[in-house]
Amino acid sequence: MIIIFAVFLLTLLVITAIAIVRAENLFVAVMLMAIFSLLMAANFFILDAADVALTEAAIGAGVTTVIFLGALSLTAENEKKVELSRGVAMSIVTATTLLLIYATFEKPKLGDPEAPVHQHVAPWYLSETPKLIDIPNVVTAVLGSFRAYDTLGEVFVVFTACIGVLFLLSAKNPADKQSRRTPPESIGLRHHLIPKVVGRLLFPFIVLFGLYVQFHGEYGPGGGFQAGAIIATGIILFALLEGEKTALAAVPHSVMMAMVAGGALLYTMVGVVTMFMGGNFLDYSVLSSNPVFGQQMGIILIEAGVGITVCGALLAIFHAFAARENY
């Protein structure tokens, strides 16, 4: 039964992808991108990847759309119509698609338990996690402990991307002195009572839910990446409803920067501390006299670091795009 759902959703996914590429209005394309992301998340969920689906849910519908819209408001909304020579590209793309499809017949079928990917380290992760770390969510265990080095790298990629965005967008535009007016305060959702009241009502719940996802990540789907994105989305909602300035007063730039750097630093420091205590880098067993408890403590600490960095980075990126408009 589930496979029929999956086929259905995947077909919709293909249709949406083609529509995104064909849409000439970029605004429409961005909105279709939101649908695309929703479909991706539903697919991930059906394919048993609850954590990934939660990440896609937290990021795809909220943050991605907001960042794309921020960029669109600074550039053009419509694509220029040009006569393109599509023939060559089309034939290359079709040929490659057919080749890829031909290649898939060599692959193991969906759900085949004998597939090579299930023979390597995965059974070890599944059987050893209850003994070595004793938390139910194996994904969090692998992310936070077995492959912590990898995750550290990803956190630094987020950190670097945030710094890059800030470098690119904080410089003043030389050509553009006075042409952009400050946006009048009389527009937007700020002056609609109902969204404002409901938004104020929802904001604490979004942040609370983010914290739940952060600290429940060992027991259910969740973790630092998802929690950071959800809390950032909550603060973006606050910024949409109360205005940029209020949001920046609540979470100023210095705090955001401290979050971005501090989270990454916390992560690294956990690794350094374990080295000082006689273990390997990011080997949390030495943090406590009981190695299992040490592992759990280490995972909670680094997940906190991940959450803080992701939240700060996404917020800083959002504000960088939003502040650019006001020049």
Partner: peptide
């Protein structure tokens, strides 16, 4: 509760 709150609000906006 969240859907019943957000749905009509989004419709209103």
């Amino acid at each position: 509760v969240f859907l019943l709150l957000t749905g009509p609000t989004a419709s209103y906006a």
